[in-house]
Nucleic acid binder design. Structure first.
Lengths: 149, 149
DNA sequence: GTACTTTCGTTGACATGTCACTGAGATTTC
DNA sequence: GAAATCTCAGTGACATGTCAACGAAAGTAC
């Protein structure tokens, strides 16, 4: 086939980057589970909920904010509710809706997890890149992630 | 808590990079499934197998090469075998062992998938970064991925 | 206000990956 | 060469995520 192909440089860069795409989240996720018993998904839900002053967020809005499907968040919220990390309230604005609320337990778990997680992100990622590299990576990440799906 | 925390720059860079970590594999994986009916894991197995002249690889060596657990590869190979993409042979060197072999069907599926996949990787990733950025990304990725687990 | 359409959260079936364990077969040690 | 140890592939239970449905409730058009 006279397919479009990758140059040696592109091939090696893509391979190296793919390794990073797999290894970095795996390592940070493992740290998180070890330190706090939370999955990366748990942490994302808890930390996003905690951003709102009343620790409440409509399911659909939280799903949109995290770029999750509503189905995924519905499943995950059910599991987190069973563990007491969040609870659900009816939405007074919309009888179909559902408000997720970070419980005190959830907040304490998050508060305990956060500093360990920051150490993990630092040691496994931030400490390894220069500020120039970090700035470039940020621009590049935003540019690519902002492309249409 | 007087926890170690992230600066605004670090925080934004980490957020942007996390978006990329999620979005890029998802998009390329969706393209792959749409174009070829293969998952990213399928593609990685097929393409790695195809690198050997005889299209054969011992399960443990293939798992090590791809940095997968043997359990994961065992499960995945069983599914791929059921679809006729690969088959399994006893290892003449080691009666515990298992040789995975890319079938003709698997090879054809890979050959059909590859050019589409290259287009996808190009349009969603390579075309979006300059050669300087790509070189930096490669160095940075290798440096981080090579850290101990 | 009544039908059509859209949105919301949930559900169930399914695919994938992890983990702990197993039995068969190598390898090492003495 | 027998016994202890390690390695290999496979397995089952489980957690997570996707997808296509669904019923209920809003929103829209007429």
């Amino acid at each position: 086939m006279d397919a479009p192909w990758l140059s040696a440089d592109e091939e090696q860069a893509w391979r190296a980057f793919r390794r990073l795409l797999v290894a970095l989240p795996a390592r940070i996720g493992r740290d998180l589970a070890h330190d706090s018993g939370l999955s990366p998904a748990d942490y994302e839900v808890l930390s996003t909920l905690s951003e709102k002053p009343d620790r409440r967020w409509a399911l659909k809005d939280l799903a949109a904010k995290m770029e999750w499907s509503r189905s995924r968040l519905s499943h995950h919220a059910a599991r987190m509710q069973a563990r007491g990390l969040i609870d659900k309230e009816p939405d007074p604005q919309d009888a179909r809706g559902c408000i997720l609320h970070l419980t005190d337990v959830g907040y304490r778990v998050l508060a305990e997890a956060a500093p360990h997680h920051v150490v993990s992100v630092r040691s496994r990622f931030l400490d390894q890149v220069s500020s120039d590299e970090l700035a470039m990576l940020r621009k590049l990440s935003t540019r690519i992630a902002d492309l249409p799906d």
